[in-house]
Design a protein around this nucleic acid. Structure first.
Length: 436
RNA sequence: GGAGAUAUGGCACAAUCUGGUACUGCAACGGACUCGAAAUCCGUCGAGCCGCUUUUGGCGGUGUGCGGGUUCAAAUCCCGCUAUCUCCUCCA
């Protein structure tokens, strides 16, 4: 949620910055005129309420002294009905204002490239391992024998998309045998790394209420992509960002505790409405996938520093896994609803010869904190909104996909990245093995 | 799932039956005493949110778990909901 006072006072600037996020100027004009009407209604009704309070005191006083107050009561009956009507009018204006405001995306930070879509994104840096050994190099032309990750997984018998579709539907799968073990190794490795970086490990509810979905900005605008629990006002989380960030909703945090850092593994549920036909194969786009998430609560002045370090925490995972990647800064048109600034980390997928998003790290500044009222007391002793950040660290399924492609051998086996071997009982290779 | 109880400032509680300025204590803050502190004494203290404003402040509104209703007036009466506790039931 944007600061309505900022919008009132800086109309021209706000209009321009909203336009950068793809919002037409009429939206703001409408919002501000409703806000003005709302404040006028408040003034009217409040002066009547002040009058009522005053007279009510006099009536109470008269009653205590057993004096007649019927005249004042009669007069107040009329005031009361006026207040009721004005209250109703104000409530409906309140709702309109809130509704409009709740649909406005966050404003982009000043150093975010302006542009309508991903074409305006700016590459920040490219990373690749110093030595590849026998492995394919990044950007090396794909050899004949190289298979897509889902073919590798099916050939080795460790990913079963067919039975996933049979039992659940399209875009669900079973991990089988070494596939399940590899997935578990990957997320255990990630959680261990983040714990060492000072993140507190959490296991969260994976069903949350509507207030939580509103708090992080998924609702009201993006309800169509969420798995709602039938008949209840609850939703299967699309990311652990929702329960992790809402952990402190409505609370005031001790300043000396900031920054607070959480990490959690959770399944993530997405309907992927409107994504039909896009990246349909394999582990890339599923209705349910595992993700290790990072969330931070910071003081405003430290949030951009913390954005950089959180991005580094995501990159660290890929570096230790030896997976080539690059980092891009998203443009105003490509960022998510709640973000003020976002880095995407994209891993190299050799079979398709593209970088594929594996992490998205965002600073939402006070956008989410305002929606869910998370504050701290600043040096001046005043309550102020914290800044919240979130980032994937990383998408687990996509990491498995990247390993299956990047560590694939000509004989169809897959070498296990060294850092994962302790998590797999020392196993250094995945080969086709019967599992039943 | 069933029955009962509870929800009031940072904390502990009173007022609820019988509607009329939300009690008291602790904590906190300011001051006195003191070289300083503790103790003591005096004073202040409803957080947050909203509006107005001449903006280190002032005034008003809201605010007794949440949402409605009745009333001149609701912590108090009525309806709905949520959470917690106890017992039963169920369960890993």
């Amino acid at each position: 949620m944007l600061d309505i006072k900022y919008l009132r006072k800086n109309v021209a600037e706000a209009t321009r910055r909203l336009q950068d996020r793809g919002i037409e100027s009429e939206k703001l004009t409408t919002l501000l005129s409703l806000d003005k009407a709302r404040r006028e209604a408040i003034q009217q009704v409040e002066s009547l309420k002040a009058q009522r309070n005053e007279v009510s005191d006099k009536i109470a006083y008269a009653k205590r002294n057993k004096t007649d107050a019927s005249e004042a009561i009669l007069a107040m009956q009329e005031v009361g009905s006026k207040i009721k009507a004005l209250d109703a009018r104000q409530a409906s204006l309140d709702m309109e204002v809130k509704n409009l405001a709740a649909h406005l995306p966050n404003l982009a930070a000043s150093d975010v490239p302006v542009g309508p879509d991903e074409a305006a994104n700016v590459e920040q840096r490219v990373w690749e391992p110093k030595t590849y050994g026998q492995r394919l190099k990044a950007h090396q032309e794909a050899p004949e024998w190289l298979k897509a990750h889902y073919e590798v997984g099916e050939t080795l018998g460790i990913l079963d998309f067919e039975r996933g579709a049979k039992v659940s539907g399209a875009r669900f799968l079973y991990y089988v045998g070494d596939g399940a073990r590899l997935e578990r190794a990957v997320y255990n490795f990630m959680l261990d790394e983040h714990r060492q970086e000072g993140y507190t490990e959490m296991i969260t509810p994976i069903v949350v209420n509507d207030a939580a979905m509103f708090g992080t900005g998924q609702y009201p605008k993006f309800q169509d992509d969420a798995y709602r629990v039938e008949g209840l006002e609850q939703t299967y989380i699309p990311t652990a960002e929702v329960p992790l960030t809402n952990y402190y909703s409505g609370e005031t945090l001790p300043a000396e505790d900031l920054p607070i850092k959480f990490t959690a593994l959770s399944p993530s549920f997405r309907k992927e409405a409107g994504a039909a036909g896009k990246d349909t194969r394999g582990l890339i786009r599923l209705h349910q996938f595992n993700k290790v998430e990072m969330v931070k609560f910071t003081k405003p002045e430290q949030s951009y520093e913390e954005l950089e370090s959180m991005t580094a925490n995501a990159e660290n995972i890929l570096q230790k896994l030896g997976l080539p990647y690059h980092v891009i800064l998203l443009s105003t048109g490509d960022m998510g609803f709640s973000a003020a600034k976002t880095y995407d980390v994209e891993v190299w997928m050799p079979q398709q010869q593209v970088y594929r998003e594996i992490s998205s790290v965002s600073n939402t500044e006070d956008f989410q904190a305002r929606r869910m009222h998370i504050t701290y007391r600043n040096e001046a002793g005043q309550l102020a909104l914290v800044h919240t950040l979130n980032g994937s660290g990383l998408a687990v399924g996509r990491t498995v996909a990247a390993i299956l492609e990047n560590y694939q051998n000509p004989d169809g086996s897959v070498t296990v990245p060294e850092v994962l071997r302790p998590y797999l009982g020392g196993q250094d290779k995945l080969m086709a093995t019967p599992h039943h």
